[in-house]
Amino acid sequence: MLKILKYSFYDLMRSRWSYVYFAFYLLLGVVLLFLNNDLSKAVITLMNVIIVLVPLIGTIFGVMYYYNSKEFTELLLAQPLKRSSIFLGQYLGVALSLSMSLILGLGIPFVFYGLFESSAIWDFSLLLITGTFLTLIFTALAFNIALSNENKIKGFGYAILLWLFLAVIYDGLFLMTLIMFEDYPLDKLSLVGTMLNPIDLSRTLILLKLDISALLGYTGAVFKEFFGTNFGLIVSFTMLTVWVILPVLRIVFKSKRKDF
C-alpha cells in the first residue's frame, strides 16, 4: 500500500492542480491577514471559507482522480497487489496531498505573520485539523461515489449533489425541523443533528472554540456546555473519525467485488 501511496502522491504533486490549490490557499491566507490585520479575526473568516471549500475540493478532486487514473488502476490490478492496498493507497495519496496543500498554503503566511507568538495558535491548529478531517472524509466519499458509478458524468453529478446536500441543504432542512418543532425541547435533537453532518460538526466545533457562542442564544449555551468540555471535544473528534472510517471501509468492501 505504501508504494501505491507514494506513486499516487508523487503523481499528484507533479500535477498542476496541486499547485493551483496550494497557491489559492497561500493567496487567501495573505489577503485575509492583510485585510483583517489581526490573526484571530483572520481565523474566523478563514473558517467560513474552509468549511465550504475544503469539502468541495475534496469531493471534486477525489472523483476526478479516480476517473483519470482508471488506466493506471487497471495496470496495477494485473500486478501481484491486493485490491485493498491499491485503492487505499490511491485514496491516501489524494487525501494527503490535498491536506498538505491546505496546511502549507495556509500555514506559511500565518507563520510569517507571527502565529507562534500569538494566542490564536490553538484556534488555527484546530482549523487545520478539522480541515484535514474534512479532506479525508470528502475524498473518501468521492471515491465511494466513483467506485459505484462507471459513468463519469453521473459520478460527478452525485458528488456535487452530495456536497450541496451536506454543505447547504442539510442546514436548511435542519433549521426547518427546528422551527416546526419549536414547542418541544430540541437541544438534544439539534446536538445529534449536528453530529450527523461532518460540515456542521466542524463548524460548531470551531465556532465554540473561538468563544463566540454567545451569538447562538440558548442552544449555543447547550452546545457550549457540550462542545466546550473535553468530553465534547473527544466525542466530536470520535465522530469525525467515524466519518472517515465508514467510507474507507466501504471503499475496501466495494473494490473487492468490482469488475474491471
Binding site: 500535477s15 487514473s69 493506471f72 487497471e74 495496470l75 500486478q79 497487489l81 485490491r83
Partner: peptide
C-alpha cells in the same frame, strides 16, 4: 488471492498509461 499474479505476465489490450509519467 493476489500472490499468484507473480507468476503471470499480462499485456493489456489498449496500452493506456498514466500520461504525465
Amino acid at each position: 488471492n493476489s500472490d499468484y499474479r507473480h507468476k503471470i505476465d499480462y499485456l493489456p489490450q489498449i496500452a493506456n498509461f498514466p500520461s504525465n509519467l
